[in-house]
């Protein structure tokens, strides 16, 4: 009898609570857009923030409500974007995968400091004081703000305080580009075979005085490979993937600022 009473009362409580929960679920339920869930499933879920929204869920909500484009997930790359477009019924052209490259070789062993900096270890903060401590006003300040910003662990600082990109881990999200107060880190299409590792706009004489690995705008590369490289002010601009021509220019470059990316397959 006692056992029966216990079972009955428990069942009763269960029933009442169950009905209560059922009503509450109906009454206070938050309607989740079916689309939003679908979008969430497609997204990588790393919450990197490269899209500009605080995490994947917020981006998914923005996509569904039409406040964000379907191709903003940089970490997910082309694959995710295409899937997203499919879910949302949008049309999308295939995007070119990008990779970050470091466009400065003037580490602390190459370019002197113009003063002893005693402030906070952050590139933007350091750049606010007299344009940063490096004698080259364009060069990498070397506090590693880009490393801190990378959600994928694709960046690290080398022994000369220059960032190094792990190209396999880099998703081309561009967060490092955004935190860099200079223009040191740039995104280039993954297939690019060569790039210029200097961003100094100064005259050659001034560059040479402070840095022996900076481009001093001699223009030899543009002369050697006129169809592939042109001079844009004091800096060369590569606009061809013709390796034969570029290789000649790389060989002739006195400052060795033209960097050939080695593991790019020639077929791609």
């Amino acid at each position: 009898m006692t056992a029966f009473l216990a079972i009955l009362s428990l069942a009763g409580i269960g029933l009442i609570l169950g009905i209560g929960l059922g009503i509450a679920a109906k009454k206070f339920g938050v309607a989740v857009d079916r689309h939003e869930e679908e979008v969430m499933q497609v997204l990588p879920g790393t919450n990197c923030g490269a899209c500009g929204f605080p995490g994947c869920q917020a981006y998914a909500a923005a996509v569904v409500s039409g406040k964000a484009p379907v191709n903003a997930c940089i970490a997910g790359g082309n694959e995710v974007n295409m899937k997203l477009a499919e879910v949302m019924g949008a049309e999308l052209e295939e995007s070119v995968p990008q990779v970050a490259v470091v466009c400065c070789r003037g580490g602390k062993n190459k370019v002197e400091e113009k003063f002893i900096y005693q402030g906070i270890n952050n590139c933007l903060a350091a750049s606010l004081l007299q344009g940063g401590g490096k004698r080259c006003p364009y060069g990498c300040l070397g506090f590693g703000s880009c490393v801190d910003a990378c959600p994928f662990g694709a960046l690290k600082m080398d022994e000369n305080c220059l960032p190094v990109v792990d190209e396999d881990a880099c998703t081309g999200c561009g967060l490092c580009v955004k935190v860099c107060p200079g223009n040191i880190i740039q995104l280039i299409p993954r297939e690019t075979k060569a790039y210029v590792a200097c961003v100094s706009k100064d005259r050659g004489k001034d560059v040479r005085e402070i840095c022996n690995v900076g481009c001093f705008g001699c223009g030899i590369c543009a002369k050697v490979a006129p169809q592939a490289i042109t001079m844009d002010g004091n800096l060369p601009h590569i606009h061809s993937d013709n390796m034969e021509k570029i290789a000649k220019a790389v060989e002739k470059c006195p400052a060795k600022v033209l960097i050939v990316r080695e593991n790019v397959s020639s077929s791609s």
Partner: peptide
């Protein structure tokens, strides 16, 4: 210095935009 940095950071975000 932190405050100067904070102001610059907010300005940078405003200029480049969150996206």
């Amino acid at each position: 210095q932190l405050i100067k940095y904070g102001k610059a950071k907010i300005a940078a975000v405003g200029k480049k935009g969150l996206l």
